[in-house]
Amino acid sequence: MPDISLATDAATLSPIALFIQADIVVRIVMVGLIAASIWTWLIIVSFFLRLRGVNRKSEAFEQDFWRTPDIDSFHREHAKSALPTARVMTAGVSEWRRSTKAKVVDRAAVRERLASAMQSATSGEIDTLSDRLNILATIGSVAPFVGLFGTVWGIMRSFTAIAAEQNSSLAVVAPGIAEALFATALGLFAAIPAVIAYNRFSHRIGRFEARLYRFADGFHATLSRELESEA
C-alpha cells in the first residue's frame, strides 16, 4: 500500500506549487523563461503570417509586372507599395530615370548603377524582413543557460537544506531538486521552438531573397534592353 504522506508531498510538486514555493532567484528565472517562451510564440505566429502574406503578394505582383505593357504606368500604380518586390522595382526605376536624363548616357555606367541600386534595395528589404530573427536566435541560445542557472541554484538550495536539517531524506531535498528540474524544463520549452523556428524562417527568408534577386536580375535585363534600343 503506498505511503499517504508521500502522495501528499507529490501533490505539492505541481508546476504552480513549485513556482510558489521556489526561492526568489529561481522564481525570477522561471518568470523570465515563461515570458521568453510567450514572446517566442508571438514572434513565430506573426512571422509565419507575415512571410506567407509577403510570398503570396509578391507572386501576384511579379505575374502582373511581367504581363504589363507599360512599366511606367505600373510603377506609378505601385510606387507607394510596401511590398519588397515593389520597392526593388521602384529603386530600379528611380535609378533609371536619374541615370538616363543626361544628354550623353554612359550605358555601362548606367547598368552598373542599376544593378547596385536594386541589389542594395534587395539587401535592405531582406534586413527589414528578418529583423526579429535575431530575437529567436538569442532566446534559442540563451534560454538553456538561464534554465541551467536556475537548476544550479535549486540544487545549491537543496544542499543548503540538507546542511540545515542535517537530514538527506527525500522530503528535504525534493523541493529544491524539483525546482531545479522545472527551471531546466522551462529553459528547454523556450529554447527548442525558438531554434526550430529560427532555422525554418532563415531558410524561407533565404528563398525569398533569391526570389528578389531573380526579379532584380530580370528587371535589370529589361532595362538594359531598353537602354540599347535608345542608343
Rank of each mutant, 00 (worst) to 15 (best):
L136R: 12
L83W: 06
M118H: 03
E228Y: 05
R67W: 02
R98W: 08
Y198K: 10
T160K: 07
L223W: 13
A11E: 07
E209Q: 06
G147Q: 09
V29P: 00
I139T: 12
R225T: 06
F189I: 06
M30W: 10
R98C: 01
G154Y: 08
P175I: 07
F149V: 08
P144W: 09
A210K: 06
A190W: 07
T151C: 15
G32R: 11
E77C: 01
E77Q: 09
L212R: 05
R27A: 14
D127Y: 12
F189T: 02
L227S: 10
T85W: 00
L212P: 05
S37N: 08
V104R: 04
I24Q: 12
R132I: 04
T138L: 15
E226S: 06
V172S: 09
A137V: 13
V25Y: 15
A17R: 03
A86G: 04
R50N: 03
A7I: 00
V104I: 06
S58Q: 03
Q63N: 06
I38W: 14
F48Q: 04
T160V: 05
G218L: 10
L49I: 14
R204P: 00
R107H: 03
R111H: 01
K80V: 01
V104P: 00
H203L: 09
H203I: 14
L18Y: 07
S81F: 01
E226L: 06
T12C: 10
V45T: 10
V105P: 03
E209P: 00
D72L: 09
T128V: 15
A191I: 14
A11Q: 13
E77R: 10
K101P: 00
L83A: 02
L42V: 14
S141Y: 15
M89F: 11
S168Q: 14
A109G: 14
S130H: 12
L170F: 15
H75V: 05
L212G: 03
D3F: 00
L33T: 14
F48P: 01
K103D: 02
L212D: 04
E179K: 02
F145M: 10
A174T: 00
A197L: 13
I196G: 01
V31R: 13
A109K: 07
F145T: 13
S120R: 06
S73E: 06
S94R: 01
E209A: 04
V25D: 10
I16W: 15
